[in-house]
Design a protein around this nucleic acid. Structure first.
Lengths: 345, 345
DNA sequence: CTGAAAGCGCTAACAT
DNA sequence: ATGTTAGCGCTTTCAG
């Protein structure tokens, strides 16, 4: 019995085209195309012939040819601020999952909290002719966003801006700040410090406003000397907490603009021998996965980052005309853990 | 004076093609193409005419048409295990930066520590006809990797596998485990527990082997009851540390398979009132950014994750025939911080 | 140095 | 239900 070469694995690397499939199956290219896309009905016999030809030749359609013809790329662009951040990568995960069903691939580019580079990154996305765009919190000007929305649908987070081709997702940061501060006030704390986020950023500002509102509601006057500037990082929180302690102004609790800040602040307190929560209560914001493993586990305002990503993806899909299951965006929620306790005077 | 409509911004959304640019500039399409790609010399006058036409029409070449013609997509596929992980997102950042110069865009897909879904993700990448592939640690079979490498160059991490179109980057995990354990032994610890990583994974195995080697070198017999299984997560580390304490077997130090594990273990110790480092020393692995903000800051083996990403990108670029600056991969390094101290008997 | 012309691989009228 | 055919927008011989 002579050995025949294994023709199942074509040795030549010449790409297989739809045309060859058609030839092998003995049908016209359009029939193959129709089967591939389910565009029209085809006789079972032909369908079978085509499918076996596809399998035999290991045919894979060239999506570039398709995109060129249809103008649809099956990609959505995502602008994020640093993939490194735990925060954004969770949102990215949500987007990825949300897009899964429709078969769209996310193309991720990262800005750097800089309006200029963000616009450049956005350009890169549109030059790839993405079918839609998701912008995860950026400082770029409204007009630029509107501009991008002229080309394809866009969803943007943390901004109040709507348009014909533009929707936004907005989490109530102020309410979160209120929740955190009210909790502290309810525990009897009246000297509550706040390590704020990056200046001029809407989310940072919102959280601070919530801090103020809770005070107003409780008829407690916040001491302005207890407001220190952080920058949303552990390093910044560390430095801010040090400044706070150096100032000598007494306080019994700190509301941090985010969990990273709280992590840094917690270390600074530790190094000065100040116990958490015995001496000082600590509240964070975001509720990152690792925060529940801080020692002690951090009380924090849970922000539904993953769900925001999911929601953004679905919303975009809807705008692009795909059937998208509606998802509910869960509200902000205070996760009370072990860094907060009653104020002992 | 009659108001003329602002023609600088074309109102119609009809896409501008290279052909129109050529018409407006009064040259042939080939000339425009040549200018776009720098393929050949063109007369300064024509170049200028074309460039102004491009600007005026806001022309952006259709990369799909180009890719269709050239077969080059200017994209590289990246297979990662969950974008959520701090670990992988740092590597992704490295890849992003490494690719920046050449103008390639990374397309990121995530596997789930599952050989099967990883292969599917890889298929998605190749169906997008990426010019190269970077695989960030996967469990897929060698044969599948080799298979992908038939289509385009691939770089893979944490695997000893080379081929005509395949290179691998390998960090010496065993050496890292050795470093960590030697440090503990040098401090006088002899009862060193190890919370291992996921079973059957090369990196977890390597770190454990290093733990063993350091013991052998120091002529200390490791107590097999001090080896407990973790899974590279904080949760797993937490549970493992609990099991360890419940077992009643005495120990004075723990070497954790990674920082997440150490974070979990640290919480478990805290909850039982066991102090770090006074009662028990703790060493992690990876040296994630937040580890230096653990309380107390974690001693850990620094793994150059970002650099691995950078290195992978450059290596791939080189394989694809682009000039790529060589980068040095820094060696593993023990970052001694505050969770380890002399064993006090 | 520049232009004409032939496709890259696929889809979508338009016929049949 | 299926085939024929004309492009999608670009690059690239091949002439001149």
């Amino acid at each position: 019995m002579p050995l025949t070469p294994d023709t199942a694995t074509p040795l030549s690397n010449e790409p297989v085209t739809l045309l060859e499939v058609a030839r092998v199956a003995g049908v016209s290219p359009s029939t193959v195309s129709r089967i591939l896309n389910g565009t029209a009905k085809v006789a079972p016999a032909k369908r079978e012939a085509v499918e076996s030809a596809i399998a035999q030749l290991k045919f894979r359609p060239n999506i570039f040819a398709r995109s060129l013809k249809t103008g649809i790329t099956m990609t959505v662009g995502v602008l994020t601020q640093s993939i490194e951040s735990q925060f954004y990568s969770r949102a990215l995960k949500g987007i990825e999952v949300g897009l899964e069903a429709s078969g769209h691939s996310p193309i991720i580019v990262s800005g750097h909290w800089n309006a200029q580079t963000d616009v450049a990154s956005l350009k890169l996305l549109t030059s790839r002719r993405v079918d839609g765009v998701i912008i995860l919190t950026s400082d770029i000007a409204d007009s630029d966003v509107l501009d991008v929305a002229k080309q394809q649908p866009v969803v943007i987070t943390e901004r109040d801006l709507e348009g014909p081709n533009l929707r936004s997702i907005h989490v109530d940061q102020k309410f979160g700040g209120y929740l955190a501060t009210r909790h502290l006030l309810a525990l009897g704390h009246t000297r509550i410090a706040h390590i704020a986020g990056v200046e001029n950023r809407a989310d940072a500002q919102g959280r601070y406003l919530g801090y103020l509102e809770a005070h107003t509601e409780a008829r407690v006057e916040p001491d302005p000397r207890l407001l220190v500037r952080g920058n949303f990082t552990d390093k910044g929180g560390y430095a801010a907490a040090q400044r706070l302690m150096d100032s000598g102004v007494p306080f019994t609790a700190i509301f941090c603009a985010n969990d990273d800040t709280a992590l840094g602040a917690r270390l600074a307190l530790y190094q000065r021998g100040i116990r958490v929560p015995e001496d000082v209560s600590l509240v964070g914001f975001d509720d990152m996965p690792t925060s529940s493993f801080m020692t002690p586990p951090l009380t924090s305002v849970r922000q539904p980052v993953y769900e925001v990503g999911l929601y953004a993806a679905r919303m975009l899909l809807d705008m692009m005309g795909y059937p998208a299951e509606a998802v509910q965006l869960p509200p902000l929620e205070l996760m009370v853990r072990e860094t907060t306790r009653k104020c002992q005077p």
